[in-house]
């Protein structure tokens, strides 16, 4: 009887992560809703661990991750996203909390949860630039530095992003934190140790989103083996890229939609597993909405 209940709880946990198991797998792993990731060698994202989610700057990795984030939010989990270089567009993520995640991977389980988690974003480079400019406007200039040296450099932004990630982990509010590092490929040893220490005291899963740089002409096998061997201390490594078959949707006057499949390689503890996700997209029509018409009754203030 007890065994049956445990199995049932495991199945329910698979459907509604973070709700049914306590102290066991449910506390340790976050299911993504994507079958190939949840049922393979990784079985989801490990809490208190760093998972690398990488690919070329355009490879479909963020689209897949958005699906996973929407899955978590609809199941009552809180997700933080540290957008280091402020590249996200708000409209793409506006309905993630409600479980709307755009092109659905065909192998993704669609669930309707009762509790809605939060999805919050920190746009690091933007916040830092605003802060610096406000300091300059107020005439507060640290240690007599010139205005030129107050410009935000990429190094500053990266350091700030690490600080923000550490604070988000330490707050123990978020179940998953996505750290979008852009093309900054490597962790400094000291920072890595700090993040690991912070993770050990929390229940958060840290997902490091990295953009790999374009490679010269390589065979596909060579690229895959490189990915499998590129562990740097992360628990699991997942690498994605666009692949065939590419679906083209014709419109009334030509091509309306390009939708490639996403190929992924998941590696953990020396083992690798291939996965593929096809996207279920449809043609956008932005003209369903309209801009706000200005209120002509009030004349515009003239300078």
């Amino acid at each position: 009887m007890n065994a049956n209940v445990a199995v049932l709880k495991q199945q329910l946990e698979h459907l509604f992560p973070g709700k049914w198991l306590s102290g066991g797998d449910g506390d340790k792993i976050l299911r993504t809703g994507i079958r190939d990731i949840d049922s393979g060698i990784t079985a989801g994202f490990a809490r208190r661990q760093i998972t690398e989610w990488s690919g070329l700057s355009s490879s479909g990795k963020s689209t897949l991750l958005r699906g996973a984030i929407a899955h978590w939010c609809t199941n009552g989990l809180n997700v933080g996203y540290v957008d280091t270089f402020s590249r996200l567009v708000a409209s793409d993520w506006a309905f993630v909390k409600e479980g709307h995640y755009g092109p659905v991977p065909l192998n993704m389980m669609q669930r309707k949860g009762n509790a809605a988690g939060e999805f919050l974003v920190v746009r690091v480079s933007e916040s830092l630039a605003q802060h610096r400019s406000s300091l300059l406007n107020k005439g507060v200039n640290r240690s007599g530095a010139s205005a030129q040296s107050e410009a935000v450099s990429r190094k500053d932004v990266k350091q700030e992003a690490f600080w923000v990630v550490e604070q988000l982990i330490r707050s123990t509010i978020f179940d998953a934190i996505v750290f979008d590092m852009g093309e900054s490929l490597y962790f400094n040893d000291r920072l890595f140790a700090r993040l690991k220490r912070a993770l050990e005291r929390s229940r958060t899963a840290l997902i490091v989103l990295k953009d790999r740089q374009l490679r010269e002409h390589y065979s596909t096998k060579k690229v895959d083996s490189d990915i499998a061997n590129s562990g740097w201390g992360c628990h699991t490594n997942m690498c994605f890229k666009w692949s065939a078959p590419i679906h083209y949707e014709s419109g009334m006057s030509g091509l309306a939609l390009i939708s490639p499949a996403i190929k992924g390689v998941v590696s953990r503890d020396g083992m690798t597993q291939n996965m593929e996700a096809k996207l279920n997209m449809h043609v956008q029509n932005r003209l369903f909405t309209h801009p706000q018409i200005p209120d002509r009754r009030t004349p515009k203030a003239r300078a």
């Binding site: 567009v89 409209s91 506006a94 919050l120 920190v122 923000v164 909405t289 801009p291 706000q292």
Partner: peptide, 26 residues
């Protein structure tokens, strides 16, 4: 902590706006 460091609250939430150009739709 974030307020003290950045002067204003950098924890943001994406919201949709009634507009059709991609850069202004949210």
């Amino acid at each position: 902590k974030l307020n003290t460091r950045y002067g204003e609250n950098p924890l943001l939430r994406p919201v949709a706006i009634d507009h059709y150009t991609p850069e202004r739709a949210g």
